[in-house]
Structure formats: structure tokens, C-alpha cells
Design a protein around this nucleic acid. Structure first.
Lengths: 114, 114
DNA sequence: TCATCATATAATAATTTGCTTATATGTTCA
DNA sequence: TGAACATATAAGCAAATTATTATATGATGA
């Protein structure tokens, strides 16, 4: 298994971006499902602009991709991201955030985006 | 292999600390060798207080241990650190910083601490 | 086309970070 | 003991970060 190497400054930049609970959790959720902005807003109980700005940082770095579906904008992991392998390694070390989504569903908020 | 789980907020805190090139490189170096402050100062070409402050953050978090040897203070990874396994995983994904030390040696600066 | 919903962006304010300079602490050795 | 060396700490400042509020953009559907 050849591990693609990452330079220290790039690794530090990745970790800096992920060194925020909201962004880290977003990435962990996206590792399992695409998600739209309004779901993140509900999950994190944060303001819509705050969420939007977190997502933008992830997008600017190339970690996530966006796709509009009608009114909604969905985000997903960008598996072509230069350091995807490194990110993946991290995600694998973190607990699934499945309950966050099931809880949303219980509250009937999941369907707001489907 | 039972992977010890880490909570998201704790993981984010770890990544935040390591999301700095200087601190991340320090940790990667320490993964291979104990190191003293003056060596870090030479390696990073940074001021002594700046280095000292970075180390303190790592120490406050419990990631590194210090041990005084005469005039010098050496630092090493704290393998009892609660999230050592997580840190180790990261370090394994990063390139060795061996050349930083061999370069020091070439400059005759390594011995300043022995 | 207009009202509504979902999202992005801009401006600003509060907080945090990381450096610098100055100084304190602790050790060694003449 | 005092000078020199290694390191830590404190204070102050500039830059970066993150949230808030207000507003713009873009899509939908009556």
C-alpha cells in the first residue's frame, strides 16, 4: 500500500480547518451522507450564515463539492481532493455521527430537504 | 483491534492544536526523538519565546512531557496522553522530519545540547 | 410576476492567536 | 557568589478567526 505523502504545511492547513468542532462534525457526517445546508443548520443549532461560512471554508479548500438540487444546495465530500486520503484517515478515527441525522428525522426536519 | 474512540469536541481540540505548522512539525520530530528547546529554536529559526509558547500549549494539553537534564529541558511525546492513539495515527501519516535533525547536526548545532 | 424559501455574501464587532520585547527563573561553572 | 547560558513567563500588539446582523441572490410555485 503506497501512502500518498502530504507536506507538513499542507497537513497543518488541513488540520487547522478541521480543528473546529462544527467543521469536523460536518465532514464526518458527509463521510456517510450528502447533506444540505438546512440540515446542518438544524443539526448544529447555529445561524444560517455561520453554517454557510463554515461550509465555504471547506469548499474553498477543495474538501467538499456542492450541487444544487432545486431550491436546495447539497454538499458532499470531494473524493478528488488532493489530500482526500489524509482526510479519510482522520474520518475513520472518528465516531459516526449517525445519531445526529436520525434525531433530525425524528423531529421531522430531515424531510424539509427532500 | 479495538480502536479507542474519541469524542468530536476532543478530536477538534487536538486537531486545532496540531493545525499549526510549527507545533505539528515539533510533534512529528518528537515521534522519533526527544528534543530540547534549543534544538527547536535552531530548526524553526524562530525566537526562543515563540518556541517556548508553542511547547507550552502542547504540554498544557498533555501531549508532551518535559524532563530537565542539567541546563537543558528535553521534551518527549507523552505516551500516556488520553488521545495518544489518535495523535499517533496522524503522525504515521506524516513524512519523517529526520532531515531537519541531520541538517542541524551538519551545522554542528545538535551537539549544543548534549 | 410576486411572495416565499434556501442560501450566500458583506460589514462589523468580539475573541483568539501568535508574535515581539522585556524580564524572571533556574542551572552551571569559574 | 556571580557571570553566562537555557528556558519560561508576562505584557502588549497586530493579524486571523468566528459570530452577528443586514442584505443580496437564486429557485419555486401560486
Amino acid at each position: 500500500m503506497i501512502k500518498q505523502s502530504i507536506e507538513m504545511d499542507q497537513a497543518a492547513a488541513v488540520l487547522k480547518l478541521l480543528g473546529d468542532k462544527t467543521r469536523l462534525t460536518m465532514m464526518r457526517i458527509l463521510a456517510d451522507h450528502d447533506c444540505c445546508v438546512c440540515e446542518f443548520v438544524a443539526i448544529f443549532d447555529a445561524s444560517q450564515p455561520a453554517i454557510s461560512q463554515h461550509i465555504r471554508k471547506l469548499k474553498d479548500a477543495g474538501m467538499v463539492k456542492e450541487s444544487r438540487r432545486g431550491q436546495w444546495v447539497f454538499y458532499s465530500l470531494n473524493r478528488q481532493y488532493e489530500h482526500f486520503e489524509f482526510v479519510q484517515l482522520l474520518m475513520d478515527a472518528l465516531p459516526s455521527q449517525e445519531e445526529k441525522l436520525t434525531e433530525l428525522e425524528k423531529q421531522g426536519k430531515r424531510i424539509s430537504c427532500e
